[in-house]
């Protein structure tokens, strides 16, 4: 397995667990009408920190165990795989962002109804988390595309 595929596996699994938990917690707060921007901000920072603290040492360990370079120069096949995966990730991100724009009106109405004290703040919290979600989902789609393409060549 190439180092790039190993990194993609590590990134995918870590993101699924850490950010999967984060977005589930956001959904739970949303369902209970207790979204708090400050709490979510620090929860997200902690999740990002934990994800980095797992991914970096795991990648270093994978490189050491496989006696591979940590960040080798990609060859032409790897560049092709990454190009294809980035294209998939970009398309996912673009479509999702358009989707967020389309649901923004619904988000605003919901914030007005559920958070009458601060509808603008609630709208911002919901939209920011939607943007974070589509960014994370697009990055995940990109990493999964990397894995799938490497598996097809293996």
């Amino acid at each position: 397995m190439t180092m790039r595929e190993k990194v993609a596996w590590i990134s995918t699994l870590t993101s699924l667990v850490i950010f999967g938990w984060y977005f589930l917690s956001v959904w739970a707060d949303f369902a209970a009408n207790r979204l708090d921007g400050d709490v979510l901000f620090w929860r997200f920072i902690w999740c990002t920190g934990i994800a980095l603290a797992i991914m970096l040492p795991a990648s270093l360990l994978a490189a050491r165990l496989g006696r591979q370079e940590f960040d080798p120069v990609p060859d032409e096949l790897e560049r092709g795989v990454e190009r294809g995966a980035y294209r998939i990730g970009l398309v996912c991100l673009e479509l999702s962002l358009v989707g967020i724009v389309l649901v923004s009106r619904w988000v605003t109405d919901m914030a007005r109804a559920d958070y009458p004290a601060d509808p603008a703040g609630a709208t911002a919290v919901m939209l920011v988390n939607l943007v974070l979600f589509v960014m994370a989902a697009s990055a995940l789609a990109r990493e999964i595309a990397v894995i799938v393409q490497f598996r097809r060549y293996a």
Partner: peptide, 10 residues
């Protein structure tokens, strides 16, 4: 040739 073993195998 400056490639990975996996690319040569492919």
């Amino acid at each position: 040739i400056g490639m990975t073993r996996q690319t040569v195998a492919a």
